[in-house]
């Protein structure tokens, strides 16, 4: 979001505010339509570039890779970050609190967390993607290789030679 002090930045801000009042329709892969503000939709770099390219704002955007449940949750994030200001310390603290609660809720359902992560990746929503990947990283940080295999359903496929190399590495590290 532009927060510059120059005249150009101010003009960009004004333009953004104006365009932010438009409504945009996003359609999930189940055909369900979600109407959001443009400011909210612009959280997604994917949609932002389509809008800026003079794309089909009126017709809306079909999102064949995102289901309704995931899209609803992603929009919840975008609404908060797209429609609220983050200029003052208090506003930023409020957003940080929202992020914390948002991710805590997602963390309880890993499969859904992964779905939201993939959607954030697909839609290029940088803040959301950083939030969810960091959450997953924090979860796996303390796990043993065995626990990782269990958590992700990974098959053990290391050969005797690999095991030998790992043993060798372990004597160093």
């Amino acid at each position: 979001m532009a927060t510059g002090s120059g005249a150009a930045a101010a003009a960009a801000d004004a333009e953004e505010k104006e365009s932010g009042s438009r409504m945009i329709t996003l359609t999930s892969n189940e055909g369900k339509a979600f109407v959001v503000t443009e400011a909210s939709a612009r959280q997604s770099a994917t949609i932002r570039s389509m809008v800026d390219d003079g794309g089909c704002v009126d017709k809306g955007f079909p999102l064949p890779n995102v289901d309704s449940k995931t899209l609803a949750r992603v929009i919840q994030y975008c609404d908060e970050h797209g429609n609220k200001e983050a200029h003052t310390v208090d506003e930023r603290a409020a957003l940080a609190k929202f992020d914390k609660d948002f991710i805590a809720e997602l963390d309880a359902d890993k499969a859904f967390l992964y779905d939201v992560t993939m959607a954030a990746n697909y839609l290029h929503i940088q803040g959301l993607f950083a939030l969810t990947t960091q959450c997953i990283a924090d979860t796996i940080k303390g796990k043993t290789p065995e626990e990782i295999r269990t958590a992700f359903g990974i098959e053990y496929d290391l050969t005797a030679q690999d095991e030998e190399e790992i043993k060798e590495e372990d004597t160093h590290a």
């Binding site: 499969a111 992964y114 992700f152 359903g153």
Partner: peptide, 11 residues
């Protein structure tokens, strides 16, 4: 795909 268990799929 590296993760295909109850926890979902993670590309």
């Amino acid at each position: 795909l590296v993760a295909t268990c109850n926890d979902g799929v993670l590309p």
